[in-house]
Write a protein that binds this DNA or RNA. Structure first.
Length: 292
DNA sequence: CACTTGACCTGTCCGC
DNA sequence: TGCGGACAGGTCAAGT
């Protein structure tokens, strides 16, 4: 699913598309996708005007301007797609391929706005969710209490990254990067990409990664996240932005899903293995297990 | 406590 | 073409 760059791309898109719109109606299918969507809760939604669309880690926060917020986690296959009232093209229209008809079988929640536009929360695997909460309670959620710093914030220096990573000792650097309580927003793609950039093998124990290597990893991570946001994130078949469009970062990826291809740096064939319970992509020449 | 593994779901792809 | 199993960009609970 979407990691920080993808969620940030969705946030930026939604911010332009739905801020100022007023909710007319909310529907949902499975309770799992909207666990606290009682009639009472929905009453806080109808009539609310979207004030802001924010993000923390991989979580979207839609501020309803009435002291309540919708918080949304896309998990692996979630999408938030906005459609204006006038989207319907005839058969064979050149834009047809960009606009999938919604709702479809993966649609879990539909928000209707008073101007006829709609926001669809789609999620094939039903891991994702939408919840309504008083805005002041958001920081009290367990996840937000534990989550680490935003890697693109000014406060996130390489010293901060070093301190956070050093909290974990006997685990692999990849597992530490994926741990949201260490640093927020990193997932499988950007863990692999940033480790390749810093020439660190993902299995290396954190205690065996030198400070100098952590500094390289910091630079690599920040660069990769910024590049991906600039490209609209990466896309699998399930990821799209708020307008239903795919991102282009994957064509800039160096190792992720490039097993069997040549490493862009040294030409060695990239391999795929399993580390920290996740599919992991490595250049066996650039990323040696025992390094200073 | 630190760390790893399995479960949550559905769809797709790959080998027999 | 059908079927079984592994796997998919995340996170928790339960296990060692």
């Amino acid at each position: 699913m979407p990691e920080l760059p993808e969620v940030e791309t969705v946030r930026a898109g939604l911010s332009k598309l739905i801020v100022g719109k007023t909710i007319a109606r909310v529907e949902h299918d499975t309770p799992k996708s909207f666990p606290n969507a009682s009639a009472d809760v929905k009453a806080f939604l109808v009539g609310a005007t979207i004030a802001d669309v924010g993000r923390r880690a991989k979580v979207l926060i839609i501020d309803l301007g009435n002291a309540y917020s919708l918080i949304i986690h896309l998990k692996m296959t979630g999408q938030l797609v906005f459609q204006s009232k006038t989207v319907h093209f005839g058969a064979g229209h050149p834009s047809d391929s960009l606009v999938n008809p919604l709702p479809d079988t993966s649609t879990r929640v539909i928000v209707d706005f008073t101007d006829g536009s709609k926001l669809f929360f789609n999620d094939q695997r039903k891991f994702g969710w939408v919840r309504l909460l008083p805005t002041v309670e958001i920081p009290n959620l367990d996840f937000f209490k534990k989550v680490g710093p935003e890697p693109l914030s000014n406060e996130f220096t390489w010293h901060v990254m070093k301190q956070r990573l050093r909290r974990r000792k006997n685990t692999s650097i990849k597992a530490a990067l994926l741990d949201q309580s260490v640093i927020a927003g990193i997932g499988n793609i950007y863990a692999d990409e940033s480790l390749w950039g810093a020439k660190i093998h993902p299995s290396t124990l954190v205690r065996d990664v030198s400070d100098a290597k952590i500094k390289e990893l910091y630079k690599s991570l920040v660069a990769v996240l910024r590049l991906s946001i600039a490209k609209g994130g990466s896309s699998s078949h399930t990821y799209v932005d708020a307008e239903g469009k795919k991102g282009s970062y994957m064509s800039f990826a160096n190792v992720f899903r490039r097993e069997g291809q040549a490493c862009p740096r040294c030409g060695t064939i990239i391999i795929k293995t399993r580390i920290a319970g996740r599919g992991t992509h490595v250049c066996p020449h650039c990323q040696k297990l025992r390094q200073a």
